[in-house]
Design a binder for these strands. Sequence first.
RNA 1: GGGUCGGUGGUCGAGUGGUUAAUGGCACCGGGCUGUAAACCCGGCUCGCGAAGGCGAUACGCAGGUUCAAAUCCUGCCCGGCCCA
Length: 403
Amino acid sequence: MTDPTPNPRGARERALALVDGCDHVETLEELTERIERGRPLRVYLGLDPTSPDLHIGHAVVLRLLQRFVDDGHDVILLIGDFTARIGDPSGRNVMRPPLSDEQIVANMQTYATQAGMVLDMSRVTLMYNSEWLSKLTFSDLYKLLSQTTVAQMLERNDFKERYETGTPIALHEFIYPVAVAYDSVAMHVDVEVGGSDQLFNLLISRPYQVHAGQEPEICITVPLLVGIDGRKKMSKSTGNHIALTDPPNDMFGKTMRIPDEVLPEYARLAVCWPSSRVEALASGLKNGTVSPMDEKKRIAEDLVALYHGRDAARAARDRFERTIQRGEIPAEMPELPLAGRNKLVDLIVAAGFAESKRAAARLVGEGGVRIDGTVVTDPAARWTAAGPAVLQVGSRKFARIIP
RNA sequence: GGGUCGGUGGUCGAGUGGUUAAUGGCACCGGGCUGUAAACCCGGCUCGCGAAGGCGAUACGCAGGUUCAAAUCCUGCCCGGCCCA
């Protein structure tokens, strides 16, 4: 993969194409200059395996990496198995508890396979930062830490905010950006990419590299995708994410729940509509000439198509229109054997539609439960259907109960 | 190390000895209106048992104590903010 792909285009043009749609490039001139040399660049993205799933927000930066792959560069996906143990404080106002080794190992595996849904992993090198970080001695760390001042650290927005509001900042949190900077030194990279919340962590690498006698890396950040709540950045822990592995119907349904205001963002970042189309959408929404719901369905369908294929996308749309918009009972749903149970609440819990029997009883009392389309409001109800019947909770949870 | 203030449910934040799992906001869930959007309205939001009225368990940093009764008082411990060193 180190064969330089002959590329007739000019370096400037290539650089511009690579960073199209990105938030911040530090700096475009350096990128252009380095491409000009003709050597494939070492480009990397660091991901801390802190959650079992990647989501469509991660896909934005993974696509940027794929652009580098396509442009003939050496792309590294760095799994932050060591830094995951420290915890990145970015964007958080509380300390995050360190993960257990088992969780980290499990997450690393899913990250690598899930990244493959966007990235051509056969042309990407996987690396793990424990390889060098775990070998640093205390005196190595001392030397590294002496290169950054507390004032520089406090410049970072979330540190400043936490400091000013009296939210605890543990000393080890300051080490995270240093560790990430050392990754860049250890791998001797040319380019680092990340989400815009990582800009500080990326930039801090540059002086470290210079100190180590290397050229500073070019830092490129991509916009963060907002979560389906339309407010906070997408993350698993906030529960506002669409996972890459979400089944088609969930992916479609979650997309339909996003607020209208963020449709252009989703069109651009989640489904990569060309900017002309995104602009048309934005202005059409503003002056009321396009139907938000129709556009939302298009985006939802495109999103599903991206990860599950066009057929699945059409099926998801069809299912949505039938069951949600027209209130029909879906053709396919999970089956649940009665298995001797006869209390309605037990079945709701067994189907996974409620966390406890009391919660199930509340749902029933609230009129949120139907059997074969008929609302049941008695929390003490017992199952009386002789044949298979459809249990429905809320508008979108269905199970076929088999006697 | 000294002083001082504080640690309440997913989150923020009331409550400072006495019906009641504990006011309120946010988040979340169900229902209504809708476009599984927004706004708005209603209800819910610890768990288990019981056909039901109900019963029981657990919960306000942790552990003890005082009291008929404690989130609320006392002691010790743990954790944090601020000030001083």
